[in-house]
Design a protein around this nucleic acid. Structure first.
Lengths: 245, 245
DNA sequence: CCGCATTTGTTCGTATGTATT
DNA sequence: TAATACATACGAACAAATGCG
């Protein structure tokens, strides 16, 4: 026996059903708040809470002054854990990759970065923040940290448009490896909302990985924040037969 | 230029800062709403919106009648894409795995399942819903669909506690393979909130995979919904040397 | 075990600001 | 510029859950 308290739950369910069933098509505009309030017989508060929930869920998109619309998204399918790269991933789906370097500086890393890199908290690193785009729309925000001692001119190189891989190679670490990638999800932080152009605290996927030399020495750590409704990760399940138990 | 208007943003930022800085320790109880309203000089509306945002972000936990608390979580590190299993994954971290079978029935699959399995929309499948737990706390909700024709007595077998792998093996498909796994994130649906014991529409990670025979014929499709703040996926980055560009 | 005070949840009304058309 | 539509904010009242005496 479901414990349904709250009219806004009912309104949310009704709107969600309309969207899923196709009665409201992707991109369609909903009636105004006032109309919907009248239709459902609830106050503006209840209606707005239902809409807010669906916006957070990525089912609706609201634009002040214009109206409320059913979301329509293009989802990027991103291959992970292999030798594919951002550029290659997008091109293979007919999307135009681009990116902006938001910031580049040399500093003392935050604690969790120092830990991941296995360095003392006072060792200097280069820190970069960049936005990756598909067809001009931002899809991810990358924060990366690299040992400053190994890549003296990395700041200038990256400002000149060189990729991390290119810098690694020129410094004699072309055969670097990527340790395992971790994936988590959470709600977007205010900074992330700005860079990813998110209208609200929507879910984001967070990827993190450590680059090491062939000997396993960490040389860089990077973290990607992805708008959850704009990407789907694919992990190739290599190996494996049965192996139950 | 940031266009930040709204007091509730300021309240959220202040609370977030208190949490991150450690002034509010994990598990600690905040002052009451009334007190916080007075302290920040805002109405209850603004305060509650700030709190709601932090709850959605997983930073706070609210309990009606009791108070608002700083979240303290145990995060499960889940190895993905290898031969590891739910049980093994938990045991290796000292967590006790358990699970409940929520439902088991034979039916016509939803469209996206039929598509994934490469079957006509009228082919019957067994559908299961189960909750996976770590130390009794729910961490994921698994929905799986399996070709009914291949596993006639699967419903009874699973009700008797047998695993999917065990059923596969007994039907002569012990050497099944897992096609690639996809990972996405979104907000939890009401059903998921109930089973995962989520107090709100928090982010969830969604994993999906197709089991096939050695010949590549699909025999089952399963989807896992994970409470985002209770799990971190780890993908082993096999292979790979440089291979830049 | 009951009852009561405390604390959060839901809902309404109302007013004003800001973006879009 | 004016009308429309969503955003923010305050206040108030009652419901529901919790915890304590």
């Amino acid at each position: 026996m479901p414990k349904r308290i709250g009219q806004w739950h009912d309104v949310e369910a009704a709107l969600r059903a309309d969207i899923l069933s196709g009665r409201l098509e992707p991109g369609a505009r909903l009636s105004t708040e006032a109309d919907l309030c009248a239709r459902f017989g609830v106050g503006r508060h209840s209606l707005r809470r239902a809409v807010a929930t669906l916006v957070a869920a990525g089912a609706l998109r609201v634009q002040q002054g214009a109206g409320t619309f059913v979301a329509d998204h293009a989802v990027l399918n991103y291959q992970i854990g292999a030798r594919t790269r951002f550029t290659h991933n997008l091109l293979s789906q007919g999307l135009a990759p681009s990116g902006d370097l938001v910031s580049a500086e040399t500093l003392i890393p935050p604690a969790h970065v120092a830990e991941a890199l296995g360095i003392t908290p006072t060792t200097q690193v280069h820190a970069f923040v960049a936005v990756g785009r598909a067809n001009g729309d931002p899809v991810n925000l990358t924060c990366s940290w690299h040992l400053a001692s190994l890549f003296p001119s990395m700041i200038d190189q990256r400002r000149a448009g060189e990729t991390v891989s290119q810098v690694y190679t020129q410094a004699g670490h072309g055969d670097y490896r990527r340790r395992e990638t971790t994936i988590t999800a959470r709600s977007a932080l205010p900074v992330e909302m700005r860079h990813l152009n998110l209208p609200d605290a929507r879910p984001v996927l967070v990827t993190a990985k450590v680059d090491t030399t062939r000997d396993g020495l960490p040389i860089g750590y990077s973290q990607g924040i992805w708008a959850a409704d704009r990407v789907r990760f694919t992990v190739e399940n290599t190996t494996m037969t049965g192996e139950l138990k």
